[in-house]
Design a binder for these strands. Structure first.
Lengths: 339, 339
DNA sequence: CTGAAAGCGCTTACAG
DNA sequence: CTGAAAGCGCTTACAG
């Protein structure tokens, strides 16, 4: 492999070829508004094109103290975060920002390492997408030399935050099941340490307690994924599982539950109803199709970048923005035989 | 919002505080191996810590002509690419590389724009993850000032490429269905323009033609997603659909087919078998669970970064690396009543 | 083991 | 409308 030429062609070469100063070349190349004689401008443009000039963003960033980039820290790349990422990327592109992506893979200790790395790269802003379970407080605005925006419920570090009203989502979900006649509920969740899952449960309980009729709730916690969910519900079915409405804290949990019920020959929705959160793209094509609360992941991502841009421009940003989830009713919740 | 202090604390401040030259400060701060007197080193480290020094990666990159970053262009953030991204991010982190991410959203014209943007940022290498349908040739190694690696089948632009043997995957899939007794096949696909989907079909045909017994294949093409897939199979069911083995070019297509069959009261796998590609995380929890060919997406991503690193170091990289998909047999393909 | 100095490629007051 | 020059914050031969 031949060594790549050590000297890149620079704005100085462009200036020389165009017969102008570097200052002028810089102006036509990057200050659209700056007044430059038309023919001078053209000469510079031609020279740049001929030489195949590719401006060096690091040099530019160094000179301007601005990198036109944003750092994004995310826990994983599951469907929920993938949707968020898609919203972030589109908005970043729209604003001419490059997106630096870092994943914590559930190790929230890595979050600070990622933020530090982004800071070395002098990103203009940082987007921190919650791993819902982290109780740790990240650095606050004082220790953060650039604007940061949080997406998803997480400890209040003092940055603007965008999140979904999961209490309301849980409330809506419970009300939907209740309206179909259900009074005996089960709630499937990994852990109360995950804000979103706890909020959904709290919302459910809130509705039930305000409904003014007797009800029961069986809590299944420590449920990690679809496999866990499957096992727990399969076990329950063998031991007189009397809940008729299973509210799963995610569609993936719901999927495990649906599979367990199917294998136990329990009909959905005739015998028991199942409902989840996230409205995974696949959920409408399950049989029975899965009722779910659709989360505004893409919107939160796009809004996060928008806020970041505003903050970078020195504009004010709402301290807390709360979006709502939407009920997508499907076959898994009704018509229910008991109703 | 108070204006952020315009002057960041620099290595010069660290040097001054430590009572050494900038050169020495630089050496202890970024050349671990460089011989520096122990106490001098400590003074620099202390000064840096006290001042809260955060090295400026743009300045560093400018001086070293190296950014320690890689650009990644991806079509979307669906589950397949999300897995790939996860592999890329982990490998990049392991090598101390920052990942810049750009999405084309299916608009392959944007690929070149992304590459150009990455080049301005002077990434050390570029990973181009195929949108399988693009026939356009990207820039070749001559027009690419940094190493590039392609992931996924795409036109040969001359860069090292890592891909999955989809012909073999199609072959394996067909053989699996054949071994269960199926002779009448259907293949569901968006379009032959997508290399992966065409290769899977070609592999299937190759197996069938070599099997030495009569067979039939009904081709469903132009099938875009699960909704399309549902409609097409629902239609077929109404019009004497005689294939017994439905091979879908992705699990999402398979999902639509499964739903259509369920709604038409056609039993899977008793009456017809269904099989897909991708082995989506959910496929094992469908009822019937879905047999699928598992793609090495994460591995391809990780390997891509590995190759990039080698190329950046000037080491040779295999021109073409072909990984294999794995058969994950589940209920949707058997035991089949006809066998 | 340490330092002075040139250089990386751009931008931007400042002066004309 | 244009240019000379200083500066952004680091690295690295070169010399000692």
């Amino acid at each position: 492999m031949p060594p790549r030429s050590t000297k890149e062609i620079s704005i100085r070469d462009v200036a020389r070829t165009a017969g102008v100063s570097v200052a002028t070349a810089s102006r036509v190349l990057s200050k659209a508004e700056y007044p430059v004689a038309a023919d001078t401008r053209q000469r510079v443009l031609d020279a740049a094109a001929t030489l195949g000039f590719v401006p060096n963003a690091m040099a530019r960033g160094l000179a301007r103290s601005r990198s036109d980039s944003v750092g994004v820290v995310m826990p994983w790349t599951n469907a929920y975060y993938a949707a968020m990422m898609s919203g972030i990327e589109a908005a970043a592109r729209a604003h001419g920002l490059t997106m630096l992506l870092g994943l914590t893979n559930g190790d929230e200790g890595r979050r600070e390492a990622l933020v530090a790395a982004f800071l070395e790269r002098r990103v203009d802003g940082i987007l921190i997408c919650a791993a819902a379970h982290d109780q740790r407080l990240g650095r606050g605005p004082e220790e953060m030399p650039v604007p940061a925006v949080l997406i998803g419920r997480q400890p209040d570090a003092g940055h603007p935050i965008i999140r979904t009203d999961n209490v309301a989502a849980g409330h809506t979900a419970a009300r939907h099941l209740w309206s179909l006649g259900h009074r005996r509920f089960a709630y499937l969740t990994p852990d109360d340490a995950w804000y979103d899952f706890r909020d959904r449960r709290v919302g459910m309980m809130g509705f039930l307690e305000s409904a003014g009729e007797p009800f029961s709730v069986e809590l299944f916690d420590g449920v990690r994924g679809e496999t866990d969910s499957y096992r727990r519900i399969a076990d329950a079915c063998r031991n007189g599982f009397d809940a008729t409405a299973i509210l799963a804290s995610t569609d993936r949990h719901a999927l495990g539950a649906l599979a367990a019920l199917a294998d136990a020959r329990i009909l959905v929705p005739e015998d028991k109803a199942v409902m989840g959160f996230d409205n995974y793209i696949t959920s409408g094509f399950l049989r029975p199709s899965l009722t779910s609360m659709s989360m505004p992941a893409t919107e939160m991502g796009a809004l996060g970048v928008e806020y970041l841009r505003q903050a970078i421009n020195g504009d004010a940003v709402p301290k807390e923005t709360i979006l709502q989830a939407a009920l997508i009713a499907r076959q898994s919740t009704g018509p229910w035989r008991g109703a």
